[in-house]
Amino acid sequence: MVEHNQPRRSHGELTKGQEYADRLVDLQQVWWKRVLPVQAAYRWNIRRLGLGRVLDVGCGLGRTLRQLDGNGVGVDHNPMFVEHCRSTGLTAYTTDEWPQAPEAVPGSFDGMILSHVVEHIEPDVADAMLRTYLPFVRPGGRVHFITPQERGYASDPTHIHFTDFAALERLARRHGLVVERSFSFPFPRSAGRAFVYNEFNVLARKP
């Protein structure tokens, strides 16, 4: 059962510290994730969208950035994540560093990705995030939202807002984005209650 009404928590309370960064690093190093090509399908999903030069907001350890073949820049509020990204050759900035970054040029990105971000924050924080970073996407550029379905949502105690297709579409439209496509990946929507890595995907365009 997914709990939709957990108590409000401040932005960054659960995902900004060293403990959370260490937890994600440990999960990434699980033997079967290193041996099996588990990211192949997700890499295909990102690349097929043809988003161009991408701003990855909430880039974490750089999993999505690595799929962009050097055509992306990340930003995250956790400095440990940013340090990890840089140590692997990726370009990333903390939220404090971003305003002074040379890449922080309005309209200079073809797309933006928020992958596994919105479920960690309150709706008003998600709105503030879009107001902050959407100006860096050019008119006609696209924004790709990814959030976990039921089983994935329940797997992480730092998830505080279950965000399905309808919630993502409302978020996009509140900021003037035109929803182009909503789809479940990698399996049909029915798999979301059993498979941890089934995801809601919503692709929207900036007019």
Rank of each mutant, 00 (worst) to 15 (best):
N78G: 06
L49K: 15
L27I: 04
S108E: 10
V105I: 10
R23D: 07
P102L: 05
T163P: 02
K33C: 06
V73L: 09
V125P: 08
Q100S: 06
Y133E: 15
R23V: 02
S155T: 00
P139A: 14
A128S: 06
V196F: 04
G62T: 04
H144V: 08
A172P: 04
I113N: 12
Q100D: 06
P139H: 08
R193G: 01
R63P: 02
L36Y: 01
L51C: 03
H116C: 12
G58N: 09
V143L: 05
L177S: 01
L68M: 13
E169C: 02
P123T: 00
G12P: 06
Q100Y: 00
A40R: 13
W98S: 13
V179K: 09
V137D: 15
L114F: 00
V137N: 15
F162L: 14
R189I: 02
G58Q: 10
S10E: 14
A167R: 14
G70A: 14
M112P: 05
P188M: 13
D124C: 05
L55S: 05
A204M: 11
L177H: 01
E3H: 08
E3V: 00
L134D: 14
H120I: 05
E122F: 00
P37E: 12
R8A: 03
V196R: 09
E119T: 02
H11C: 07
V35D: 12
V2G: 10
A41T: 05
A40P: 04
C85H: 10
R53Y: 04
E19H: 09
S10T: 10
L171P: 04
E150L: 07
S190Q: 12
E3P: 08
L203T: 01
R48H: 04
L55D: 11
R189N: 05
P135N: 11
D124R: 14
I160K: 12
A92T: 12
G58C: 01
G111W: 06
G192V: 03
L65H: 00
V202Y: 01
R142Y: 03
H144D: 14
G12N: 12
T15G: 08
R174P: 01
S108R: 11
G192R: 14
E180L: 07
G74E: 13
S115G: 04
M80F: 06
D96I: 00
L168V: 09
F162H: 12
P186G: 04
L51R: 15
K33H: 09
R151G: 00
C59I: 00
S190G: 05
R86N: 13
E97V: 02
T95F: 01
V125W: 08
H116Q: 14
T163S: 07
M129L: 11
E103D: 08
R66L: 08
A21Q: 04
D110T: 02
V82D: 14
R48K: 11
V35N: 12
G17R: 14
R193V: 01
G74W: 05
L171N: 04
V125I: 12
G141E: 15
G152A: 04
V196Q: 07
V38M: 15
V202L: 06
W31E: 14
M1R: 12
Q29L: 12
K33T: 02
T88C: 13
Q29V: 00
F162Y: 06
L130Q: 13
G72P: 03
A172G: 03
H161N: 12
A191H: 07
M80K: 15
G72V: 03
